[in-house]
Design a protein around this nucleic acid. Sequence first.
RNA 1: GCCGAUGUAGCUCAGCUGGUAGAGCACUUCCAUGGUAAGGAAGGGGUCAGGGGUUCAAGUCCCCUCAUUGGCUCCA
Length: 644
Amino acid sequence: MIQIKFPDQSVREYPEGTTPIEIAKSISHGLAKKVLVADIDGVLRDATTPLNHSTSLRLLTWDDDNGKAGFWHSSAHLMAEAIQAFYPKAKFTIGPSIENGFYYDVDFGEDSFTADQIPTIEKKMDELAKQDNPFVLYPVSKAEALAYYKEKSNEYKIELIENLTDGDITFCRQGSFVDLCRGGHIPSTGYIKAVKLLNVAGAYWRGDEKNKQLTRIYGISFPQQKMLDEYLVLLKEAKKRDHRKLGQELGLFTFSNRVGKGLPLWLPKGADLRERLERFMRDAQKKAGYQQVVTPHIGSKALYETSGHWEKYGKDSFQPIHTPEEDELFMLKPMNCPHHCEIYKAEPRSYKDLPLRLAEFGTVYRYEQSGELHGLTRVRGFTQDDAHIFCTASQVKEEFVKVIDLVLHVFKSLNFHDFTAQVSLRSKENREKYIGSDENWDRAEREIQEAVAERGLTTRVVEGEAAFYGPKLDFMVKDALGRSWQLGTIQVDYNLPDRFELDYTGADNQKHRPVMIHRAPFGSMERFIAVLTEHCAGNFPVWLAPVQVAVLPISDKFNDYAKKVVELLKNNEIRTLFDDRSEKIGKKIRDSEMMKIPYMLVVGEKEEAENQVAVRQHGKGDIGVMSSDTLIKLILEQVKEMLN
RNA sequence: GCCGAUGUAGCUCAGCUGGUAGAGCACUUCCAUGGUAAGGAAGGGGUCAGGGGUUCAAGUCCCCUCAUUGGCUCCA
């Protein structure tokens, strides 16, 4: 007998060789039907694995993330089997589960796989799922494994196997498909009741662009058809929140081929919104002791040679501008820091001046790879809510904590609760990519983590994601389609002060080198507005909404009264739209609702007689009749609340 | 930059196997003056992304370029 320990710490005895599925059956048949995979001593295994030793066991169902992972990973096997039926020569590489679904990277060799093959593969998958073939995991020796894939001339699997130790290698078979796999499968293909292949994309083998590009096929699957239907509805809903779609519908921004790709044009309503956000940030920064500065959009190439950016990013920049004068080269500003360093140098600094916090809404231009451009989240010209803090080494941590507080204040004011904080450190290898001394790096990395701990932030620590001059803390937020974007960032930099030979006079009357902190709570106005738009689905809070109130007269007869209301609102600095078109009230309401205007004032005979307005709130409907003054107070209070 | 997809009126999209363009919304004018998500009629608007080719004939087929887009790589 062996002893099995369950998550609730209870222990039961079973005969040796019992499988997790059998254990589930011993508990209840309902559970047995739901169990997908098993967590055996913390390792994901097939639920059909015989247990030969006493162990801890967690039975994983669809409700567990790991249960889903096993389900989707198994679905990747099923997809491979279906693909193999049509493309016998296809070479399979890796097929993992992902956050939502799974993919398989396939080398189709001479053949090509295009999106129109998807229905065929889906159909085959359904057919193979119905056969309810068990997933059978069995050990193979390294030699056997290598021989199997040599026969198939699959160099990818061979490469994978070569990195495995003999004795630890298992294959998995379901139906006619065999795959190198360590396990974590559902019992049989019949569990997969609904499959949807989502898209086909290119991906490099092992994520390295020097390697061969494979065809990656993404899919998702569910244990019930209903769940797939719901998921597809969800996807559709998410697409409605896409900032690119809303930006066009709400008249926020546009792009023009003639102006150039990745160069957004802000329309009046978008510019309005953006300006308001800038004002909000400016005020918050003023309170936090920042000083605004302004620097030009270009800088001489020599400036960036000094900063080191030319060497590192020269090729990824808009190329220097040649002027008539010999040897005169200017670059479109790709970042503001060098300019700010020169402002620091403009006068001698004392330790009493520090920390010196220089802020600028600085527009920068970066020649991003064309394939990278994406709406407002990845553009070639954007404005950072940038600032550089010059401080003494002993002030770094305190300043860092203050910046964290500022970022958290901004996020809270805008109802961003769903973000993750990521600490980016150097990678252990490739140390030559980074500049600066080990001592400074270690110190900066330590201080960031201390600051983060002090504010109780839960963070993800990622090695190898640091900037070349220093470690950083990034605030990541997901967009409507679940893609992660970096918004706020705080970076410690010991390097630029060296390169620009910045100094200050200390209390000891000696020259010392300051430390720089780069920081941008929004990241960039463009990206922030994109994510904010998706976050609130275009329903901006009243203080930000480009139009706060629409005044809608019932008929032309009441335009005069309506106009008085409009004037009153405008005098109170409420952004108001006057819809005096000769349309029916239903139509005017519909149009205002579509524009997501927070308040609609319906005025007609009754309202005019009583000197009132009938208020309708976006998404909520009629909220009753009140005087214009009451409404104005209501709105101004909401605005004030947000700005304090 | 790489692999794939897409590009028809301001917007959303039709346009089958080639026979020189359509709808709805928006816009303009007229009628209607209507009480909480689309009133009616008439009208204007398109070098079918751009260029080249095949053909008697190209929005439709082929090639190139540009842009958008799903991924990959990248992201100071």
